[in-house]
Each structure stands twice: as C-alpha cells, then as structure tokens.
C-alpha cells in the first residue's frame, strides 16, 4: 500500500503540523526505502514544542499518517522539547543497516545528551520504543 500523509481538519492552521506533514511527504518521496518502516507503524505520538506552545499528534496506521493539531486521542508516547531540539531531532544520523539513530553521529550524540539532561523528554518511551525509533527514522532527513 502506498503511504499517505494527511492533515486532520483544523491542522492546516498549525504551522508545525503543516511542516511535519510536508516533511513526511517529501522525505518519503526522496527516500522510498523508508516506506516499509511506515507501513509497520501503528499508534500515536504527540510532539510538544515547549517554547512555542505548539502541539501536534501523529496518528500512524500502517502506512497512513494523520497529523492533528493539538492532542488527539491518548498518545502512546509524548515528546516534549524546544523548537531547537525538535529541529535537531530531524537531523539525527541513522546507521545504515537498521535505520536506528547512530550513536557515532554528532547530532545523535547531542540529542542523547539533551535527553539525559531532561531537555528532551519522551513520556511513554519504554512502552512505545519501537514506534518512537521508527518515527525517528521516517522523520530524519540526515
């Protein structure tokens, strides 16, 4: 099934929601090898941009993604970080074999360090680790 990225009604007024949707669409067009990863994803992840007061929820459903304005449903994981860190998280280097964050990458190391300091908080990570790692892969542009 071909992946599809949609904006939920009302999300078109959330600049971050439109950016995330555009990033997913253009990223999947550019790197079609990520499409099977997206096809395995189910669940919801909320992204909270703490300094801008923005929230988007990504609802993944086996190849379909709906980007919502604000919290939509009960997220399996919630990522809270400043706009700077959200931008950097899209630049995390991936190791080529499994597409996991590459701990040797400069940005990946910065993100790990920020997580350790609590500047990036991921609630629900333990229960939704595969979902969060796959989301990192499909959103990364590195």
């Amino acid at each position: 099934m071909e992946p599809a990225v949609h904006l939920a009604p009302g999300a078109e007024n959330n600049g971050y929601a439109t950016m995330v949707a555009q990033l997913l669409r253009q990223g999947l067009d550019e790197r079609p090898e990520k499409k099977p990863t997206l096809a395995r994803m189910t669940g919801r992840v909320a992204l909270v941009v703490t300094d801008l007061g923005l929230v988007v929820t990504l609802a993944f459903d086996r190849g379909h993604v709906t980007v919502h304005d604000g919290f939509a449903g009960i997220p399996d994981a919630t990522v809270r970080a400043s706009s700077e860190w959200h931008t950097k998280m899209s630049l995390v280097e991936l190791e080529p074999r499994f597409g996991l964050p590459d701990p040797r990458g400069a940005v990946a190391r910065e993100v790990f360090e920020a997580s350790r300091k609590g500047e990036i908080q991921v609630h629900g990570l333990l229960g939704a680790l595969p979902l969060v790692l796959r989301m990192t892969k499909v959103l990364s542009v590195a």
């Binding site: 600049g15 950016m19 555009q22 550019e30 801008l52 706009s83 959200h86 931008t87 899209s90 542009v141």
Partner: peptide, 24 residues
C-alpha cells in the same frame, strides 16, 4: 525565521523541506 516557520508566521509555499532542514 525557523521558529516563525514552525508557527506558520512564515510559510514555505514552494521548496523541499528536507533540504531546507539539512541547511537549517
């Protein structure tokens, strides 16, 4: 400008966002 794009105050109406983020 990057925060303004996230807030929708500046809109990129054309262009490849992954490329722009690589050159943030």
């Amino acid at each position: 400008p990057i925060k303004a794009m996230m807030e929708g105050k500046l809109k990129m109406t054309k262009g490849h966002l992954p490329t722009m983020l690589r050159f943030v």
